[in-house]
């Protein structure tokens, strides 16, 4: 396995793209999000200066793709799969109930910053649908009644 050094700040990320190409934009945004958990306004300005692209273009790209978040997420990221297999097994009710339980909607963060709900389309774990994924841990074959206990595990 290749051991790549994880960049510690935005300057280091930008330094990894010495050619300053337009096609580097999405990889840079991906690296920034990995570093910060989201894409901050400052980061957009820095990238804009580096690639010599208007901030509006960068904002345009960042908002087009579902992957990019423009607000910092909470401590725990709860991803609810809304793919077809999960839908057929009742993921709509799961999401509804999760939203009600936490008092927020998808793509929002609770006031205490404990949870962020995110909706994703298919995590490739369709065989154990319906699936939610909290901080990278999969929880499959779920029923709405299982949710409170799962949420409790994440302080």
């Amino acid at each position: 396995m290749k051991l790549k050094e994880t960049p510690q700040n935005i300057e280091e990320i930008l330094g990894n793209y010495p050619q300053k190409l337009r096609s580097d934009l999405i990889p840079i945004l991906q690296d920034v999000q990995e570093l910060q958990g989201y894409i901050s306004q400052d980061a957009i300005k820095q990238i804009s200066g580096y690639l010599d692209l208007p901030t509006s273009k960068i904002f345009g790209v960042a908002t087009f793709y579902n992957q990019f978040r423009l607000n910092p997420p909470g401590r725990h990221l709860v991803q609810v799969c809304r793919g077809t297999a999960c839908h057929v097994k009742g993921s709509a009710k799961l999401l509804e109930s999760l939203e009600r339980e936490l008092g927020i909607k998808a793509a929002q963060t609770t006031k205490d910053r404990r949870y962020t709900i995110e909706v994703v389309a298919c995590m490739g774990a369709c065989s154990i649908a319906p699936v939610i994924c909290v901080d990278g841990n999969y929880h499959g074959r779920l029923d709405v009644k299982d949710l409170p206990a799962i949420l409790e595990q994440y302080e």
């Binding site: 793709y65 579902n66 994703v120």
Partner: peptide
């Protein structure tokens, strides 16, 4: 490798 960014 180019990683997609989540757009169908």
């Amino acid at each position: 490798i180019k990683k997609g960014a989540g757009a169908f």
